[in-house]
Design a protein around this nucleic acid. Structure first.
Length: 519
RNA sequence: GCGGGAAUAACUCAGUUGGUAGAGUGUCAGCUUCCCAAGCUGAAAGUCGCGGGUUCAAAUCCCGUUUCCCGCUCCA
């Protein structure tokens, strides 16, 4: 079995080799944290998202779908708090180069003596030089520490080395910004420059002025799909006569300008979400929270080989978002440890009330039975679709030792649930003669006509073809052999057990469809 | 963002002191083959991540840069 250390490497390598996931713009050197889903990857991702849609929308009377635009009115993000909350003031330490959040830095009153601490004497010596040269302050070095510094009027120091020499606070907005309309913000800046509007400005003042000049037409790519479901709450509820409790679901791309990206497709700036906002009467929210936690856990486990790797973890009070009353994370045991796959949050009436306040729209629900108005509470299961793809790639990967023609060898099998498998069935002639190829192609046609993704394969020896389909997770291989030509029977080989049985060639499509339905 | 490691064929990797770019696997074509990466013959495939520098000569040495991995940090 692959160890945790090299499992990711093997997955990444297999993904590229077999057409699941490629690095974006690879021939140009690659783009940071952007990935393209290849022919098999797009099938896997689509199958996963289709399964979610089927479970969350199509099989529930009280949940309907939505597909909203990615660019929304900028005031949506003011109301949601993303424009303010997303922008954490960040500061760079000019001594150790650390970048940190101003609001999380250790406090130090102006004039207070501070000690700079480094990992070792060498680093302390370098820092001593920087301070002497750039700030013309002579400090005294004691081992890995520098003494004699005094805190400025910023009220805090660098959390790593303790230095008071810091850059200005800068707003880092985690939303991707663009502009709507043909006028570029650069033109606005150029105009203002020519008009001398920036004369004499510097630091924070300059940045504020730039912000003001470029504000017209500024729009943002959505950092989550959720807001559209709140903004369109009234339209959806009224057009479909939905009665609370009900849900609005949406799948699609979201964008976050993450400071750090990591672990292949786990955290990237462009990602895909599967979110549902479930509107319920205040007071019933705790029950619904429990219901959706149970539903969502069961859904993830349903397609997994190893359900024990999923867990539901309640958020600690101090990690709750400002809007949430309670939150559970569906976590998966990734090779680097447990990490988030889905967040199920009780967002209360925070979002609807905010949008009512900012837009002036009357966002309320009238309950005809109880003859009363209220603002619904919201339970939000928000899953990462692209993270789901990674989870099932990890879950599917198996290596096993089998007897081959040249002794024991390693068989790599992607044990995808048949619902998720990119190719459901491969049809192959045992050898390329006696009319077997024609017969096999006819069987493939029959599958495709039924909407089942089938693949024809005649390349190389039969054993190799089986192994190739093991590696891309094809659940069943159908083989046309000499006996087929005599009695119309065909062999079905199972990916996981490698066992074969004979069925009638005419019943093959029905048989596989039945297996898929039962899976 | 910080620290460490890496980048050579589609994949996994060799490449000696600086001296004509290599292997295995895979891919493709053909032969053979009635069931688990069999065999034989042949072929294609590399801006050595990118850009500079040193040198008669750079995959190799130096500088910069991009991307990935690991560990921190961050993740309203």
């Amino acid at each position: 079995m692959a160890t945790d250390n090299d499992l990711m490497q093997k997955i990444i390598s297999l993904c590229k080799r077999r057409g699941f996931v490629f690095q974006s713009s690879e021939i140009y050197g690659g783009l940071r944290s952007a990935y393209d889903y290849g022919p098999l990857g797009v099938e896997l991702k689509r199958n996963l998202m289709d399964a979610w849609w089927l479970d969350m929308v199509r099989s529930r009377e009280n949940v309907v779908g939505l597909d909203a635009s990615i660019i929304m009115h900028p005031r949506v993000w003011e109301a949601s708090g993303h424009l303010a909350g997303f922008s954490d003031p960040l500061v760079d330490c000019k001594v150790c180069k650390e970048r940190f959040r101003a609001d999380k830095a250790p406090a130090a009153a102006a004039g207070e003596a501070v000690v700079l601490t480094f990992a070792d004497k060498g680093k302390a010596k370098v820092a001593l030089g920087i301070v002497a040269k750039q700030f013309e302050v002579e400090l005294e070095r004691r081992g890995a520490q520098l003494v004699g510094a005094v805190a400025g009027d910023r009220g805090y120091v660098c959390p790593v080395c303790g230095s008071p020499w810091l850059s200005d606070e800068r707003q880092f907005n985690l939303m991707f910004r663009s502009s709507l309309g043909p006028i570029s913000p650069m033109s606005a800046i150029a105009q203002a420059l020519e008009a001398g509007e920036f004369a004499g400005l510097g630091g924070a003042e300059l940045r504020a002025k730039l912000e003001a000049v470029t504000k017209d037409g500024a729009v943002y790519l959505r950092p989550e799909t959720a807001q559209a479901m709140f903004v369109q709450f009234l339209n959806v509820q009224q057009s479909m006569s939905m009665k609370v409790p009900f849900g609005i679901a949406q799948m699609g791309k979201s964008f976050r300008n993450e400071i750090t990206v990591e672990h292949f497709i786990f955290r990237s700036c462009e990602f895909e979400q599967m979110e549902m906002e479930f509107f319920c009467e205040p007071g019933t929210d705790d029950e619904w929270m429990e219901y959706w936690c149970e539903q969502r856990m069961a859904w993830w486990k349903r397609y997994a080989n190893d359900p024990s790797k999923f867990r539901l973890r309640p958020h600690e009070p101090d990690e709750l978002a400002h809007y949430a009353k309670g939150c559970f994370d569906v976590e998966y045991a990734y090779p680097w440890g447990f990490g988030e796959l889905e967040g199920i949050a009780n967002r209360t009436d925070y979002d609807l009330k905010k949008h009512a306040l900012h837009s002036g729209a009357k966002i309320e629900y009238f309950d005809p039975q109880q003859q009363k108005k209220f603002v619904p509470y919201v339970i939000e299961p928000a899953a990462g679709a692209t993270r789901g793809v990674l989870v099932y790639l990890l879950d599917a990967y198996h290596e096993e030792t089998v007897d081959g023609a040249k002794g024991p060898e390693t068989r790599v099998v992607m044990r995808f649930h048949p619902t998720l498998a990119p190719i459901k069935v491969a049809v192959m002639p045992l050898v390329k003669k006696d009319g077997m190829t024609e017969k096999a192609r006819a069987v493939v046609e029959a599958f495709l006509r039924r909407g089942i993704n089938a693949s024809y394969d005649e390349q190389h020896a039969i054993g190799r073809r089986y192994r190739r389909h093991d590696e891309i997770g094809t659940p069943w291989c159908l083989t046309i052999d000499g006996q087929t030509m005599e009695d119309g029977s065909i062999t079905v080989r199972d990916r996981d057990t490698m066992e074969q049985r004979r069925i009638s060639i005419d019943a093959a499509v029905d048989e596989i469809q039945e297996l898929l339905a039962r899976a």
